[in-house]
Design a protein around this nucleic acid. Structure first.
Lengths: 182, 182
DNA sequence: CTTGAAAATGATCGCCGATCAATTACTTTT
DNA sequence: AAAAGTAATTGATCGGCGATCATTTTCAAG
């Protein structure tokens, strides 16, 4: 219940809209209960972010993959963008929230790895077995780049004279074309 | 003084380390004075972020540009990465901080534009005059992608089994190669 | 009906961002 | 030098926040 409530506030107001008292009030409990269930507000937000990642993965995991990496990546990017544009503030909580001590916990990184796995599948036709390291490397580059494009766009930090789609398409097409040419 | 103090706290502790009372104490003033000078803490942080952007621009603006876009972009990326790795938390404040009402103000976007201008110069050899629109478009794609790579790496959200440099290099080389091939 | 564990409470703490009438410091005018 | 005017600074005050934890309530097992 608390996470569902947090999610609603996040969707409506972003990270700043998430508060322990607010959530408690919202779900009809008192603040003490929140702290019995979660190890502080940071813990709650971390778990919310995890659920968000799961949701994105669920939305993208069944993207059909063919033999053309460009088409595969495009299909993946479409799912990604659709999710982010449907829940821009919820998604941005993932990046506005910084982990207090050093990096994110391992189980968080695993979820990122899982998403990158989708990209690995998308570009698999380009890499015969034995070249998994390269495949992972390029999947990471592509994933990070996609993230950057979407991120700057939904944050509105870029003049929006063009669509996200056209930027993504060029990234995908040129990168894959470059890979093939080398 | 307040901005310099905020900068120190940001470098040390990130966004969470910036507080009005803390800054006031640090610079030997009281909290009221902070609020006479700035229109709230958000305003202060926004101005800090601007200074950070200026600093990055200053660090990168004199990158010598030759005829090879790949080399140009690499040189630019090196400056970018050097800055971010020298001030990771300060830089992350730029992205952890979300603008309260809608997007960032126009004068903020102009600074982003200015940075993208550097990328435009870097890839200028590929675009004869008359194709400025395309040049801007690809500069945006490259800039956003670079941002994504650096961003995910400094946040530690990606398993760091490889260097930022290798990811950037591949982005740059493959994208430019793709551009040339098409 | 009793009992013991689990769940929920809410008063309390210290701190935060923000406000603003009052005060102090400094400049200009006479 | 004194007075008047202006600019800068103060700090008490407000409501709200995250967090804590001894106490109370709930409820199922014996």
């Amino acid at each position: 219940m608390a996470l569902a409530s947090a999610r609603r506030f996040a969707e409506a107001e972003g990270l700043r809209g998430i508060g322990a008292r607010k959530i408690a009030r919202d779900i009809g409990y008192t603040i003490g209960t929140i702290y019995n269930v979660f190890d502080g507000l940071d813990d709650l937000i971390l778990k919310l972010n995890c659920k968000t990642q799961d949701e994105l993965y669920e939305a993208a995991k069944d993207t059909p993959m063919g033999e053309d990496p460009v088409e595969n990546l495009r299909a993946l990017a479409v799912k990604y963008v659709a999710f982010v544009e449907a829940h821009p503030k919820l998604w941005s909580v993932n990046f506005e929230f910084s982990f207090p001590d050093g990096g994110p916990p391992d189980w968080y990184k695993l979820r990122v790895k899982r998403l990158i796995g989708l990209v690995e599948n998308a570009i698999a036709p380009l890499f015969p077995s034995g070249r998994e390291r390269e495949r992972l490397h390029h999947a990471r580059v592509l994933w990070s780049s996609l993230h950057g494009i979407i991120s700057l766009n939904v944050a509105g930090k870029m003049a929006r004279s063009e669509t996200i789609e056209s930027m993504e398409d060029d990234l995908i097409e040129n990168y894959i074309q470059g890979l093939k040419s080398r």
